[in-house]
Simulated assay, not measured.
Amino acid sequence: MRLCFLVEEHYRHDGMPVEVIRQLVAWGHRVDVLRPGGSLLRMSEVVSAGSHDAWVLKTVSGGPGLTLLEAAAAVGLTTVNDARSIRGVRDKALAAAIGRNRGLPMPTTYAAAVPELLAEIPESAFPLVVKPADGSAGRGVCLVPSPDRLAAMTGQLAGQGMLVAQPYVPNSGVDLKVYCVGGELYATERCSPLHPDHAVRERQVVLPAEVAAVAAQVGAVYGLDLYGVDVLLGPDGPVVVDVNDFPSFRQVPQAAARVARAVLELARTGRAGAPDVIPQAIIPEAVIPEQQPGAAV
Rank of each mutant, 00 (worst) to 15 (best):
A187V: 08
G99C: 04
P115H: 01
T269F: 00
G99T: 03
S136A: 14
E9T: 11
A96H: 04
L3H: 09
S85P: 09
M1R: 15
D245M: 13
C191N: 11
Q291V: 15
P115Q: 01
F126T: 00
A152T: 11
G76F: 00
A262F: 03
V144G: 00
L185G: 03
G76N: 11
Q23W: 15
A113G: 08
R22H: 13
A152I: 03
P170T: 12
L40D: 11
A281E: 04
R149W: 12
A96S: 12
A286C: 10
E45L: 12
D242R: 07
L41H: 04
R261D: 10
R100D: 01
V263C: 05
G270C: 04
P293C: 02
S85E: 03
G63V: 06
A256Y: 15
L3I: 15
G182N: 07
L232T: 00
A54Y: 05
V130A: 01
V129Y: 09
G294A: 12
H13P: 05
V231E: 02
P193I: 02
Q280D: 07
E202F: 15
S172C: 07
T154F: 06
P107R: 02
V114Y: 10
T108W: 11
V169W: 07
A213R: 13
V174Y: 06
V129H: 05
D236M: 14
L143V: 01
S85N: 02
H195I: 07
M43E: 08
V18I: 14
D276K: 08
D197R: 00
A133R: 04
R201G: 00
T154M: 05
